[in-house]
């Protein structure tokens, strides 16, 4: 069998997915319910909605604006992640095995794992290196929005360790560097459900 060409991605836009999330229905729902890229983007949108719900009202007002840099950055990256991306080879037990995982799946894993770390919300996430060459050294750049009141070095260390564990478990990538940059700070309302500390 000739190996299939690179996954072209599903082609749905973030706007379509956001509409689906808001309305709960779409003429394209059959696809969205069965597409891993759409599912990952929808999950990330849900988490983003949770974050915005935790911000102070003043920040929330700004967050609703597409001119707000951190919000626009996260949305831009989610838009990229609706694509499956490159195919990352996995070692097979049989010579005719053709095993892989998608770049989109790994990026979504990083975002999901990172978002579980208290005080962190993942923004940009990029791989540096040749993902398609087994064993090639890979660097990962992760931008993070941190909640005000977190000790940032501790947050970065926890995040780096958590991501390294998840990547070691679920990929065969040779990750030699996880570069974490705190690019924004958010403030949690004292009355919100978030666990962050108000200043």
């Amino acid at each position: 069998m000739t190996p299939d060409a690179l996954d072209p991605g599903c082609g749905r836009t973030l706007e379509e997915l956001s509409d689906y999330l808001s309305a709960g229905s779409s003429p394209d729902s059959l696809h969205m319910d069965n597409c891993p890229q759409c599912q990952a983007a929808l999950a990330a949108l849900r988490r983003l909605h949770t974050l915005t719900g935790q911000l102070l009202e003043s920040d929330l007002h700004q967050a609703g604006s597409t001119d707000e840099p951190w919000f626009r950055s996260i949305m831009d990256n989610l838009r990229l992640e609706t694509k499956a991306g490159r195919s990352i080879a996995l070692a097979g037990a049989h010579p005719d095995d053709d095993l892989s995982e998608t770049e989109g799946a790994v990026v979504a894993l990083i975002r999901t794992i990172g978002d579980t770390v208290h005080g962190a919300t993942i923004g940009k996430c990029r791989f540096n290196g040749n993902l398609e060459t087994p064993g090639a050294p890979i660097g990962i750049e992760v931008n993070v929005t941190a909640l005000w009141g977190e000790r940032l070095p501790d947050l970065a260390n926890t995040l780096r360790q958590t991501l390294a564990q998840a990547l070691a478990r679920h990929t065969e990538l040779n990750v030699d560097d996880i570069d974490i940059a705190i690019t924004d700070l958010g403030v949690v309302s004292p009355g919100s459900k978030g666990n962050g500390t108000a200043p």
Binding site: Q37, D98, T116
Partner: peptide, 30 residues
């Protein structure tokens, strides 16, 4: 040839999760 591609990986958290919203019907695989 047997081609298997992992297209999504659910996270099994090793640290406590943040509060998450109730899943929408729109996001439940069918």
């Amino acid at each position: 040839a047997i081609a298997v591609q992992i297209c999504s990986i659910a996270a099994v958290p090793s640290v406590p999760r943040k509060a998450e919203p109730t899943p929408s019907p729109a996001t439940a695989p069918t």
